[in-house]
């Protein structure tokens, strides 16, 4: 059974119909890729799944539980994590604090826990700091851990955005172009990390424009155009399909890879 099942999601902004009945499924323990031209509604779909925008119609099921229209923190509690296409960091807090903020089940995150379980949360802070540092090591941000996130470069912000999602130990991650703006070597390193996590049982729904990355890492691809799914299947099949070229790349296969 699919871990995430999106059914017939419709969404309009004013007169603009952005999602016109999107139906897709992501399998457990797989990396599901979502591609499509700019403005085809991919980000809107992910925000709708995560409860950041309310759908006009349709339903979202996660592990059999309906999560349609739940507020984002409930979606998070259900086991999902989300990383924004345009990073939304807390720029006044340090990189470390941004990371720890994302952690699940913090003893000291509630008012009474903060006051009365001081010993316990302080121990947890130490553990979370270690965990944060091992993720930051992967992302090459260790030396900036105690700097305000506002001092990071554009690409580093993107890395921290993904780091936060990793920090929250989810069952499934929704990532909006995790490798965009990141140097190619590091981009692949991130995907390798995601693949390791997948092999450990995590599931992913990832928006990605880079075809070679999708080919190498995705288990299944959905192609979206004008708010609808027009094609889906194994990466190879989809990329071979003439429809893919007509809607997405607009050219022949060779031209797509030479650019």
């Amino acid at each position: 059974m699919a871990i995430l099942a999106v059914e017939n999601i419709c969404k309009s902004f004013g007169g603009l119909q952005v999602l016109k009945g999107v139906t897709l499924e992501a399998e457990e323990g797989q990396i599901t890729g979502l591609v499509g031209p700019n403005g085809s509604g991919k980000t809107t779909l992910l925000s709708t799944i995560f409860g950041l925008t309310k759908p006009d119609e349709g339903s979202v099921k996660f592990r059999g539980q309906t999560i349609t229209g739940l507020p984002p923190h409930r979606v998070y509690e259900a086991g999902l994590a989300f990383s924004f296409q345009l990073p939304r960091l807390i720029t006044q807090l340090t990189v470390l604090d941004n990371m720890i903020l994302a952690a699940r089940d913090q003893v000291g995150a509630g008012f009474s826990g903060a006051l009365f379980l001081r010993r316990r949360w302080r121990r947890q802070e130490t553990e979370l700091a270690q965990k944060a540092m091992s993720i930051l090591e992967l992302l090459g941000l260790v030396h900036l851990a105690l700097h305000p996130a506002g001092e990071l470069s554009g690409g580093q912000r993107k890395l921290l955005e993904i780091g936060r999602a990793l920090m929250s130990d989810p069952v499934m991650m929704l990532l909006d172009e995790p490798a965009a703006g990141v140097n190619p070597v590091l981009g692949r390193k991130i995907y390798q990390k995601l693949r390791t996590l997948r092999d450990q049982g995590l599931s992913f729904l990832i928006i990605e424009h880079k075809l070679e990355i999708l080919l190498d890492f995705a288990d299944r691809i959905y192609l979206m155009d004008f708010g609808q799914i027009v094609l889906s299947g194994a990466p190879k099949e989809v990329i071979e399909n003439p429809v893919f070229y007509a809607t997405y790349v607009g050219e022949t296969k060779d031209a797509a890879f030479s650019s």
Binding site: P72, H73, F82, F84, R88, I90, L101, A102, R164, S168
Partner: peptide, 9 residues
């Protein structure tokens, strides 16, 4: 919004 996405009500 970011804080909500990180699971805090």
């Amino acid at each position: 919004v970011a804080v909500q996405v990180l699971g805090k009500s």
